[in-house]
């Protein structure tokens, strides 16, 4: 009995020792190789990646000018209309409307918080800039919805398209924004239009991803039953799939919205204006207090928008709960 116990203990020790031996060997080898190759200069020929990109952008700037001018025109028209609307409505109407809606659907505490936040923005004199920011974010969101949701629908229908799309979406979300701000300026100049496009690049992926996911999650049993009665693909999409997917799609829209607001400061580097400008201004002059005010205003806008769209999404999901 005792003998067998010590035997098995020994075996365990053996296995442990072997593992340590291997690990030690690998580390030793790594260090030895480094030591030996320390003196040797190893180089690879340079791949002309940067030059390639430069040439491509230059070519596009010259040859695709009409195309980008067209885009610019559409975005400007939309932006001007939306901005005009936000300027036209007096702040007191906005504050009362938002506060009232919050009181009706989100409760008294949220309503008080919203009111306090919005009134603070007014009182520190940032209301106009806040509305300019909101107009820019709204324009971006309109464009994100009209491009992102159809792309998401296509991705949900076609596995190959989806897998081709995935790395593109990853790149859009993880590539540092400054990297594409430069070519965007080349192609579109500076100002609000490139700011809208930069925001779109960064904030569209969640809308696409969650639309795709939402449609793929619709119960196959429900789809099969609806189809068995002779529903056309069009009827299936608009009467069955989108209504059942709307809660998840709303979650994607909410994420896109938050990311669009978080682009405000970076976009102001290429002329987005609005609250982002105030932050940049305070930063460049080391005015801590001003910077804090502008930052707080962005925060208030983000919270108001987030809570409101989340509430919309929850109402939608209540509607479509299966059980």
């Amino acid at each position: 009995m005792k003998g067998s116990l010590s035997d098995s203990t020994k075996r365990v020790m053996d296995i442990k020792n072997r593992k340590w031996l291997i690990a030690g060997g690998v580390v030793g080898l790594f260090l030895l190789a480094s030591k030996l190759l320390q003196a040797v200069e190893l180089t690879l020929p340079r791949v002309p990646l940067a030059d390639g990109v430069d040439v491509a952008i230059e070519w596009a700037t010259i040859n695709l000018a009409p195309f980008f001018d067209g885009i610019k025109l559409v975005v400007i028209k939309l932006l001007v209309a939306i901005t005009a609307f936000f300027d036209w409505v007096p702040w007191i109407v906005w504050v009362v409307a938002v506060g009232g809606a919050a009181f009706r659907w989100l409760g008294i505490r949220t309503a008080v918080f919203f009111l306090a936040g919005l009134l603070t923005i007014v009182s520190v004199g940032l209301w106009d800039h806040a509305m300019s920011t909101i107009a820019l974010v709204s324009t971006s969101m309109v464009l994100i919805l009209v491009t992102g949701i159809p792309i998401g629908i296509m991705a949900s229908r076609n596995d190959r398209f989806e897998s081709a799309l995935r790395p593109v979406l990853d790149a859009m979300q993880t590539m540092p924004s400054f990297v594409y701000l430069i070519p965007v300026i080349f192609l579109l100049g500076s100002g609000k239009v490139p700011a809208v496009l930069a925001t779109m690049i960064y904030a569209t992926p969640p809308a696409i991803r969650l639309t795709n996911l939402a449609l793929r999650q619709v119960s196959p049993e429900i789809k099969e039953a609806a189809r068995s009665f002779g529903a056309t693909p069009f009827q299936m999409l608009f009467k069955v799939e989108l209504p059942l997917a709307v809660a998840t799609i709303m979650a994607g829209v909410n994420q896109s919205l938050m990311m669009a607001i978080s682009m405000v400061v970076i976009a102001s580097l290429i002329g987005a204006g609005g609250l982002g400008n105030d932050v940049l201004f305070a930063m460049s002059r080391v005015r801590v207090g001003d910077g804090f005010e502008a930052g707080l205003a962005i925060l208030v806008l983000a919270i108001v928008v987030d809570r409101s769209t989340q509430a919309l999404g929850q109402r939608a999901s209540k509607e479509t709960r299966t059980e």
Binding site: E221, I222, E224, R227, T232, P243
Partner: peptide, 21 residues
């Protein structure tokens, strides 16, 4: 086929397949 499903057949499913919304 769509026309056939509309006119000639209708189906009842084990898990109902009703539209929850």
């Amino acid at each position: 086929l769509v026309d056939f499903r509309r006119r000639k057949t209708s189906m009842v499913f084990q898990h109902f397949g009703l539209l929850p919304h």
